[in-house]
Design a protein around this nucleic acid. Sequence first.
DNA 1: TCTGGGGTCCTAGGACCC
DNA 2: TCTGGGGTCCTAGGACCC
Length: 430
Amino acid sequence: MPPGDTPMFALVDCNNFYVSCERVFNPALNGRPVVVLSNNDGCFIARSEEAKALGLPMGGAAFKFRDILRKHRVAIHSANFPLYGDLSSRVMNTLAGLVPAMEVYSIDEAFLDVDGFGRLGLMEHARMIRRAVRRSTGIPVSIGIAPTKTLAKLANRMAKKSHGFEGVCMLGDTAAARQAMAMVEVGNVWGIGRRHQAFLNRNGVMTTLDLADAPASWVRKHLHITGARVQAELNGRSCLPLELVRPRKQSICTSRSFGTGITDKAGLEEAVSHYATKCALKLRGEGGIAGLLTVFACTSPFEEPPDRYWGTRTVAMPVPTQDTLAIVRAAEAVLGDIFRQGFRYKKAGVILGEIAPRADICPAPSLFVQEDASGEASSRLMQALDAVNSRYGQGTLRVASDAPSAWKQRQERLSPHYTTSWDDIIAIHP
DNA sequence: TCTGGGGTCCTAGGACCC
DNA sequence: TCTGGGGTCCTAGGACCC
C-alpha cells in the first residue's frame, strides 16, 4: 500500500452505546457495572466494561445471571429506544459537520470519508473528532482507520481493546494490518459469524491472518461471494464503498415476544392489529407503499415439537397501499388463516414487503377494488391520523381492534424505563 | 416461570422458457 | 426418440449484521 494515495475509511463506533446513553442522563452510573436489557427484560443487549468484566455475555438470558447481578449490585435498565435514537442523531449530526461525507451504518456506527486529510494528519484529526463528539453529546467513541471498511472495523476493535491507543487506531500499511490480524480470532472479523467461524476453525483457519492468507478459490467455494469479499478487504483491496444515501427499505417489520403466552385468538388479534398499525406508520415515514403483507405467530422455540408451532403466510395487497385501515384489515384476515387452537403463542409479527416509493403510484382506478386504498381520500385520512397522533401521542386516534389490552399493560410494567436493581424487577414480577 | 427486534444478502432448487 | 445450454423468476432457508 503506497502511503498517501489509497483511500482511507474511518469507522466511528460509540462505546457500549446504550449504556453510555443511560450514563449521560444518570452520571451516578459511571464506574458501576451496568446492563441494558431487551424487551421483556429477556437478555443483555448492552454492557458496561465493568459488566463485561463480571462475565455477563452479550445476548445472555438475564434470568440465568440473577445471582451475579444481585451480588455485584449491577444497575439494570430496560431498553429506552426513543432515547437512544435521539442521542444517535446528535452523534451523527456532530460527525456530519466534521467530514466531507459519511455513511450512517447503524444506530451507533458511522463510516467516514477521511480522504484528503493526509496520512500524518489522520490520527490528530481522529482525536479531534473523538473530543468533539464527547463534548457535544457526552458519548465516548472509538475510531478505527484503514484502507478498507473491514480493516477499519478491525482497527476499531484494536482501539477499543487496547488502552494504549486511547480510542484511535490506524492500520495504515500492510505490516500494521498483518500484525493486527495475527492477534484477532477469525470469528471476530466483520462478516464471519458463528457458523463460518466453526467451519474455518475445523479447517485450521484460526486467526484473521490465516483467513487473509488462505487460498482465494477455497474461500470463494466455501464462504461464497461474501466471504471472498471479506478476504479481499483484509488484504487491502476495497470492495465495499461508502454508501452515502440510505437505500430505501425493502421490508418493514414489527414484532414482539409476549411476556406471558397468548392462547386465545382475540388476544393475538389485538397484538397483530397493533403491529400492523405500527408497520403502516413506519411505511408512511419512509414515504412508501407496500404490495406484500406477511403475518406470523409462533410458540416459543424452546417448546418441545408437539407444542411448537410456526404459522406464517404472505399475501399480496389488493392494491399497494400505505393505509392503516387496509393493512390492519388484511393482517387480521391472514391471522385468521394461520391461527391454530391449542398452542401457547409467545410471539407474533407483521412484515410489509414489495415497498415502492409513493410517487410511483399510478392512481389508475380499479373496477374490482371497492375502496381505493391507494387513492387521494385515503392519503388525506392518513395525513390527518398521523398529524393527530404526532401531536397528542401515538394511539390517540386508532383502529378499534388496536385496543390497549390487558397483556400489553402487563408488558409495560414489566419493562420500566429506569430500574436500578434486580430486586425492583422481581418485585413487580411475582 | 424467565432467552430481543429489525434488517440485508446469498444460495439452492424447482418451474418454465427458448 | 434423444439430447443441450442458457436464461428468468420464485421461494425457502441459511448466514450475517447491529
